[in-house]
């Protein structure tokens, strides 16, 4: 979680490669979910994918290189924000069309099912994707075919700037999946252990052949939609939101349990800062693609 936060903070200081889609505040969803995954599982996400990619184990240097447009990036600098992918890490990829990866994920799950391969396919999407028709179509088919798939909705309460209550009728969002006969729960997405436990339980059921499941993680986005989008929430509301920082919550819990002290935390922060600095250095030392690469890999 600390790595995600510091990585995104470093990236936010780099406007030289366009805007970025940050997930600060939502780290517990990414880390909790990914901690329940195995190497055989596949993760697909929406565009807000830095947290999930790092949590899945994608190399920070190649990730930073990709986000800064370098040819050493996970996608050779061609995907960029919103399209990160690294199959070797079990990160099948992000797709920046809102809701666009939901049916794709079902296809990946179908491939697993058809070839009797182990592993669950997880698609992480925001409440912004919840209103898309592709969700209903995919829930229906996934339930009918009993695909090994977890629908994970990271409900950060906002579709760009539009509040969830203004545009989405189901309450809670997870109630939608009940109509398809899926195990479905809404849990606090700001508490790491809660996310991990919910994900583990859902994945256990899917691995046991129970068919797809749905989880809604209620989270809070600390920043605006993107690094160049206006923040429309009042400062007082933002202060309340940021006070619920999942990293601080987890650190406090660990401290209370006697697992983490100030020195250990400082040491962790030092290590994280070093990894982020190394990632930025790797990216900065890497070349941009050459213009003739605009025509390579098209087909």
């Amino acid at each position: 979680m600390m790595l995600i936060r510091r990585f995104e903070e470093a990236l936010a200081r780099r406007p030289d490669h366009g805007f970025q889609l940050l997930s600060s505040g939502e780290e517990a969803v990414a880390v909790g979910l990914c901690s329940a995954l195995t190497a055989e599982d596949e993760l697909l996400t929406g565009g807000r994918s830095i947290g999930p990619a790092l949590a899945r184990g994608v190399d920070p240097g190649r990730l930073m290189a990709e986000l800064l447009g370098r040819s050493t990036g996970t996608n050779s600098g061609k995907g960029g924000r919103g399209h990160l992918a690294d199959r070797t890490s079990g990160f099948f990829g992000a797709h920046a069309v809102v809701g666009g990866n939901i049916s794709i994920a079902a296809g990946v799950a179908l491939a697993h099912q058809t070839r009797s391969e182990p592993g669950v396919v997880v698609v992480l999407f925001g409440d912004g994707a919840f209103g898309a028709g592709a969700l209903h179509e995919t829930l229906n088919i996934a339930a009918t075919w009993r695909l090994p798939m977890l629908f994970a909705c990271n409900n950060n309460q906002l579709s760009v700037s539009t509040a969830r209550d203004v545009v989405l009728a189901p309450r809670p969002l997870s109630s939608l999946a009940l109509a398809y006969g899926m195990p479905s729960h809404t849990v606090d997405g700001m508490t790491l252990d809660t996310v991990t436990a919910a994900a583990q339980e859902a994945l256990d059921g899917i691995r046991a052949g129970g068919g797809p499941a749905f989880l809604e993680f209620e989270s809070l986005r600390f920043a605006s939609h993107s690094t160049n989008a206006r923040e429309t929430r009042p400062a007082a509301a933002l202060a309340v939101i940021r006070a619920r920082c999942p990293i601080q919550q987890f650190a406090t819990a660990l401290t209370d349990q006697g697992v983490l002290d100030a020195d250990a935390r400082a040491q962790l922060e030092h290590e994280v800062d070093a990894r982020v600095a190394a990632a930025v250095a790797f990216a900065d030392a890497s070349p941009f693609p050459t213009p003739d690469e605009a025509l390579t890999d098209v087909w």
């Binding site: 049916s103 990946v108 179908l110």
Partner: peptide
């Protein structure tokens, strides 16, 4: 009758090796 999901599932399955 769900063309968006049909094509999406086809594309995803293709990306995964089918």
């Amino acid at each position: 009758v769900a063309e968006a999901a049909m094509v999406g599932i086809g594309a995803g399955a293709a990306a995964a090796g089918l």
